[in-house]
Design a binder for these strands. Structure first.
Lengths: 249, 249
DNA sequence: ATCAAACACGCAAATAATTGCAATTATGCT
DNA sequence: AGCATAATTGCAATTATTTGCGTGTTTGAT
């Protein structure tokens, strides 16, 4: 039995019973407990499970009454989130925008990730509120009910006075020539301010948003460092972005 | 049963009933009382609960916007919310604090109520986000994960520069002689600032909190205009408050 | 003040984790 | 293919964690 195979089996057992014991796994999979422990350690580092003395528990021990399965295009967004996660390092200071893709992203943050997150999205803050190591700062302002994000002039002030390692923004439209666009004026102003203070700008967009235009410009393509979609990074659709120096993944 | 598993179970029981007894836990989880005590001690060090002689209490009530029926003392709090609602008029500007009682209150706001609500509680903002006529402004700041509220110095600044018709605050302790008290320093500072800028100060407190003291003073009894409990307004327990000019209801 | 319940401390047994090391197995490269 | 290198695995010795029990102390309700 291959290592990967075994690890998948471990995860599947964990899925069923919400907990696994090192001793039991060692018997049922015919490997030493050491190996099981090494597997568990590895999986724990990937955030796939929570390693504890004697075995492991599902990370989703928490009561997520959150409607994860109601997210549109859940699979695609999860894939994008996984790609985005590779860009994040311990001790980073991030600004994370609204949208379900970002919600997906913070949902897969491994438990040992120690970062600081600034956000204006209430669902994002909520979901991070039970993460053990992440510090969350929520920007305040008037609540835009439709998207459950806050906006306000003060907020743009606040943002302008900070710096962050990276920002993760979704897009309502992106285009090789024009750049990143936004439907809502207030949100566009907000994102404009965010882009200015971040070393690394990461845009997450499903391919259907590519080459669609919206009313308000956030920034030109030259400000964007990474573009994440659900497609293969060498897709021809994305060639234009690669040519302009955007890291596509 | 694994240690972590047990601790999670303890926390989950605690969440439901707001208190746990070492003896009961020892029986229901089939471990010695020593083990329970050690668990409680450990969890207390992590700030997950407050250890007391004989068991443990919740340190701060974590609010789940979704699971209304699990709110502790739901009936009492609903009753208090109904009383509080009588104090609210159209076009009011209110500051509403955290806690499940306030959550209950905003839950029964009639759909045609047109007011402006300032809050630092994320669950409150969430719940109001689907109300058609209420404008919600969320104060920003560092997220205190246990209670899902935000705090911060900026926030006190912001509050000091506004005025509101009334504020609705829960109490972690109130006493005729001392006044309103709070467990957490940062929250106490926050409430202090709020009380200063509100024309009408409404405190909501279950009777069990009456005459209990906490570490940090928010304000004296003279600043409090209304006291809402689940008891009859002419209860003898509340006589002291009435004598000092507090409207008890 | 009294007394049972709750607690803290140390100890010992059992179980689990870690580490270094050697044997085996996979992988990449010419 | 053949070889070098890296990864994986099991083993043994050591270390750490968990747990229950005995002892003596503290607590808090009457």
């Amino acid at each position: 039995m291959l290592k990967k195979e075994r690890q998948i089996e471990i995860l599947s057992q964990l899925e069923k019973s919400k907990k696994v014991l090192s001793t039991e796994l060692s018997l049922s999979l015919n490997v030493s407990e050491d190996t099981i422990r090494r597997d568990l350690k590895e999986l724990a580092n990937e955030g796939k499970l929570l390693k504890v003395h004697g075995g492991a528990l599902t990370t989703a021990q928490k009561v997520y009454t959150f409607r994860e399965n109601e997210i549109f295009d859940h699979d695609k967004k999860l894939l994008m989130a996984k790609k985005a996660l590779t860009l994040i390092e311990d001790n980073d200071v991030l600004i994370i925008g609204g949208g379900t893709t970002n919600l997906e992203l913070v949902g897969i943050f491994p438990p040992d990730l120690g970062i600081t997150v600034f956000t204006y999205s209430i669902p994002i803050a909520m979901r991070l509120s039970d993460h053990p190591k992440i510090e969350v700062i929520l920007f305040g302002g008037k609540l835009m009910k439709s998207a459950q994000v806050t906006v306000g002039l003060d907020m743009i002030q606040n943002i302008s006075n900070m710096r962050a390692d990276a920002c993760f923004l979704s897009s309502s439209g992106i285009d090789v020539d024009t750049g990143l666009m936004e439907i809502d004026w207030e949100v566009s102003q907000l994102k404009k301010a965010i882009v200015r203070v971040c070393d690394k700008v990461v845009i997450m967009s499903t391919v259907e948003k590519i080459d669609t235009k919206q009313r308000f410009l956030v920034c030109g393509i030259d400000k964007i460092n990474h573009l994440i979609t659900e497609a293969e990074s060498d897709s021809s659709l994305l060639q234009g972005f690669r040519k302009r120096g955007v890291h596509v993944l």
